[in-house]
């Protein structure tokens, strides 16, 4: 009987905790905050350290960070029109175009976001100002400098891999990775824009590719553990790795440049207009330099001056290529399907 009372007491306590949790959790969202999004870990840390303080200082409004992925956030906004749980959403280039098309985003302007004036057109105009990227990353090659030489051009790199020059020690982004289709487009550009040739080349290198990677973490693990010597990877993530005492690793963007990844920042339709101030902070000198120091990715604001050590790592703007997303958006599902059929 005593044991039973003990069990009941525990159950009651559980039910009570449950009920009080519900009451606490059911509170209306506080109007004194805005919700912004960020990928997990270091991305969220950068938002908390570099963007949020600027916004909070300017407005007195608290910033809350929702971590996750572009598609999760987009689904949440889509499901709750007019009552979005997110005020400022960060989307991949394609998701941003889709969201704008569906009327889920507000259009930015220099009046609402003064710093937008200093951002080159390539980082917002193709999205018709429904989004702007605060930073950019370039796809290049991180390689083990103790065993392989710096690759000079993409064409040469692909031919060398296909000829077995690097052995079976190569990792390349998969066509199904978020920026996989962009990289495929870029390979096609090396051969006159022909996507068929791009697929032929990918098939030619396949026997030497240990893994067509789908997450940056698995890619970096392959490289760090020495399973691959050549990793097609993002510049910022590569330098973050090299700077942690891994001098044997080097990074370079082969000629004629690298395809870009952007993090499109947008104000969600119906969000409090104060959210524009947050995007202005992202694009401000303070936000841009701070984020670059944390993430090793350059900012897009052309008027910002960076410390020398950072500038030395940046892939210059003229070397990055922004794919014409609005032109290729309808062809990408077909490329992904083809990748799944022919490459896996």
């Amino acid at each position: 009987m005593k044991r039973f009372s003990c069990a009941l007491a525990a159950l009651n306590a559980a039910a009570l905790i449950g009920a009080s949790t519900l009451a606490a959790m059911a509170e209306e969202p506080k109007p004194e905050k805005i919700v912004v999004t960020a990928y997990g870990g270091i991305w969220a840390e950068s938002v908390a350290k570099n963007y949020a303080p600027c916004f909070e200082k300017k407005t007195g409004v608290r910033v809350e960070i929702l971590t996750g992925e572009s598609s999760d956030w987009l689904n949440k906004v889509k499901a709750n029109p007019g009552n979005s749980p997110i005020d400022v959403i960060t989307l991949s280039e394609l998701d941003s175009l889709r969201a704008a098309k569906e009327g889920l985003l507000e259009q930015l302007s220099v009046e609402k976001v003064p710093n937008l004036a200093s951002i080159p057109d390539a980082f917002h105009k193709p999205w018709d100002d429904y989004g702007v990227s605060g930073n950019y990353g370039a796809m290049g090659v991180m390689y083990n400098s103790q065993s392989v030489a710096e690759p000079q051009s993409w064409k040469q790199l692909i031919d060398d891999i296909a000829a077995g020059k690097y052995g079976e020690k190569v990792a390349w982004p998969s066509g199904t990775y978020t920026w996989g289709p962009s990289q495929l487009w870029w390979v096609a550009q090396q051969y006159g824009g022909d996507i068929d040739v791009a697929f032929e080349k990918m098939k030619a290198i396949k026997p030497y590719v240990v893994k067509f990677w789908t997450t940056p973490v698995e890619a970096l693990n392959l490289f760090a553990t020495g399973e691959v010597d050549v990793l097609v990877y993002w510049d910022g993530r590569a330098f973050a790795f090299i700077n942690k005492g891994n001098d044997w690793a080097k990074f370079s963007v082969p000629e004629p440049g690298g395809v870009v990844s952007l993090v499109m920042q947008s104000v969600v339709k119906g969000a409090n207009p104060i959210a524009y101030e947050y995007i202005d902070c992202v694009l401000s000198e303070e936000g841009q330099v701070g984020n670059s120091q944390t993430m090793r990715y350059p900012g897009t604001n052309s008027t910002v001056t960076y410390p020398d050590d950072l500038r030395a790592e940046f892939t210059p703007m003229e070397k990055v290529k922004v794919p014409p997303y609005s032109e290729i958006i309808d062809r990408i599902p077909e490329w992904i399907e083809r990748w799944n059929k022919e490459m896996q």
Partner: peptide
């Protein structure tokens, strides 16, 4: 939401970009 994020969710988003 930001108030109710659970551990598996924060682990998942952390794992994708942090090694």
């Amino acid at each position: 939401t930001t108030d109710t994020t659970t551990l598996p969710v924060s682990l998942l988003s952390y794992l994708v970009y942090n090694y």
